[in-house]
Simulated assay, not measured.
Amino acid sequence: MRIAFYAPMKAPDDPVASGDRLVARNLVAALERGGHEVALVSRFRSYDRGHRERQARLARLGARLAARLGRVLAEPGRRPDLWFTYHLYHKAPDHLGPAVAAALAIPYAVAEASVAQKQRGGRFDTGYRASLAALARADCVLTLNPNDAAGVAPHLRPGVPMEPLAPFVDAAPFLSAAAGRKAERASLAARHSLDPAKPWLVAAAMMRADQKLASYRVLAEALSLIAPQSFELLIAGTGPAEAEVRAAFAERGVAATFLGQVPSGEVPGLFAACDLYVWPAVKEAFGMALVEAQAAGLPVVAGTSPGVASVVGDGETGRLVPQGDPGAFSEAVRALLDPPRRAAGGAAARRNVVERHDIGAAAAALDRLLGETRRRFHAAQAATPPFERAG
């Protein structure tokens, strides 16, 4: 199929790294691996922080762009077979996909949509209503976070399927990085004066003054409860709240090695050189780094939620604890400082990703689900009288 891909939150080629960008890139890669031709049809970013006037302007601009895009994609040789939107919610509604799909008479698929009823009538009301309007036009919805399903289902047309899609990565670079663990560990130890005999804990996340900062603060407090000489801590990431993140660890007396922004191509090597991934995951959907770390053979300690629990097996591939509980988090870390437990968890973590969260399985699932969506859409079109279809 020829697929028109759009991510209203953040385009897959956005210069700023984030989990959202990573998921978008992985989706494109999985679709291409399934044999589909994928075109990024717009970089229009509808993301807004709650300014009503700006939301209205974005909606008007989106309508104009959708009309123009509909004309462009209708040209010979450019018409897609399906429109695919990734990450649709009140802060980043899809003003393009429903209109273009309707104009071209092609199916409209959505991956990772969420509905927060509390936004109705509030400062995100424009985006909230636009996201509901898009869901009402969807022909298929794929859920990466099981926590989203209950909110989305009431807004779909009868008979429109909502299918789970497990978060996934291309596991191959992480699996192959294991062979270079010894050399990578020695290199990092030399550069940052790390003790290779100690267990290395690692966290990788952006540094923003929101739930990311909250997670870093929980992590600092939790690790302050563990004997400092028993581990090394490496932190990959940067952002506007970096000073606050550094202060959180300094105030708790936790020594941390800050690596800055690690290029995506170097992440497999970094994770392979470490021993345990630690992240409180405060108010997070699932966290792609949790999947990547497991692919590298690291057990995970994380704050739990339905999304996180869908990618980390508590007691198998790591430990899950209540969100925001430093005491429980420290106990879970302390348990996995034990080498045999850590080794068993790491082996299970690698198997978990290979069997359930690798790009190959995702490519096959997407190919099947989108193929079914297209066949179902055209069967319905053929059974609909032309005057009803036009309306």
Results as ranks from 00 to 15, higher is better:
Ala138Gly: 13
Arg52His: 08
Leu234Val: 06
Ala66Gln: 05
Leu40Asn: 07
Arg181His: 10
Arg389Gly: 03
Arg57Asp: 14
Val23Glu: 09
Asp338Phe: 07
Ala227Glu: 11
Ala227Trp: 03
Arg129Lys: 07
Ala348Gly: 10
Val28Ile: 09
Pro12Ile: 05
Arg71Pro: 13
Gly391His: 11
Leu298Glu: 02
Phe44Val: 05
Arg123Phe: 11
Thr238Phe: 02
Ser42Gly: 04
Ala248Thr: 01
Phe5Val: 05
Val23Tyr: 11
Ala24Ile: 06
Pro339Gln: 04
Val308Met: 03
Val110Phe: 01
Lys212Thr: 13
Arg21Trp: 03
Met206Arg: 13
Phe168Pro: 11
Ala241Glu: 12
Ala348Tyr: 11
Glu251Ile: 00
Asn145Leu: 09
Ala332Gln: 01
Arg120Ser: 13
Ala102Gly: 11
Met1Pro: 10
Ser264Cys: 00
Gln261Ala: 13
Tyr47Met: 12
Ser46Leu: 09
Ala349Tyr: 06
Ala203Pro: 00
Ala236Ser: 12
Glu292Leu: 00
Ala256Val: 09
Gly307Asn: 14
Ala343Arg: 07
Gly237Trp: 04
Val72Phe: 15
Val218Tyr: 10
Gln294Ile: 08
Ala205Ser: 14
His192Leu: 01
Asp210Phe: 11
Ala214Asn: 10
Tyr86Asp: 02
Val152Cys: 13
Gln211Val: 14
Thr317Leu: 11
Ala74Thr: 06
Leu31Ile: 00
Gln323Ile: 11
Lys198Ala: 14
Thr126Tyr: 08
Gly34Leu: 01
Lys182Val: 15
Arg319Lys: 05
Pro93Leu: 02
Arg78Met: 06
Arg123Ile: 13
Glu331Ser: 05
Gly121Ala: 07
Leu270Pro: 04
Phe168Ile: 11
Ala273Ser: 00
Gln294Trp: 03
Thr143Cys: 14
Ala379Thr: 13
Arg45Tyr: 02
Val169Pro: 02
Ala134Leu: 06
Val301Trp: 01
Phe286Arg: 06
Val311Glu: 08
Cys140Ala: 15
Pro280Ala: 07
Gly327Lys: 07
Ala383Asp: 09
Pro386His: 04
Leu132Ser: 06
Arg217Leu: 01
Met1Ile: 09
Asp170Phe: 00
Arg356Lys: 05
Ala111Gln: 10
Asp338Gln: 13
Asp170Cys: 00
Glu372Phe: 03
Val100Phe: 01
Arg71Ala: 15
Gly391Thr: 06
Phe5Gly: 05
Phe44Leu: 10
Ser230Thr: 14
Gly70Phe: 14
Arg356Ala: 02
Pro339Cys: 08
Glu316Ile: 15
Ala7Asn: 12
Ala178Cys: 12
Gly19Lys: 10
Gly34Val: 02
His51Gln: 08
Ser264Tyr: 04
Ala134Met: 06
Ala227Phe: 05
Glu388Pro: 00
His51Asp: 14
Ala183Glu: 14
Leu270Ile: 02
Gly151Ala: 12
Ala348Cys: 12
Val354Ser: 10
Trp279His: 15
Glu112Ile: 10
Pro306His: 09
Pro326Ala: 04
Leu69Trp: 12
Leu69Glu: 12
Lys212Val: 12
Arg45His: 11
Tyr47Ile: 14
Val254Leu: 04
Gly239Lys: 08
Gln211Ala: 15
Ala11Ile: 06
Val160Asp: 11
Val300Tyr: 03
Ala243Glu: 15
Arg78Asp: 07
Asp367Met: 09
Ala214Gly: 09
Pro340Gly: 01
Leu336His: 04
Arg356Leu: 01
Ala103Pro: 07
Leu320Ile: 03
Ala379Phe: 08
Arg246Asn: 05
Arg217Val: 01
Ser305Met: 02
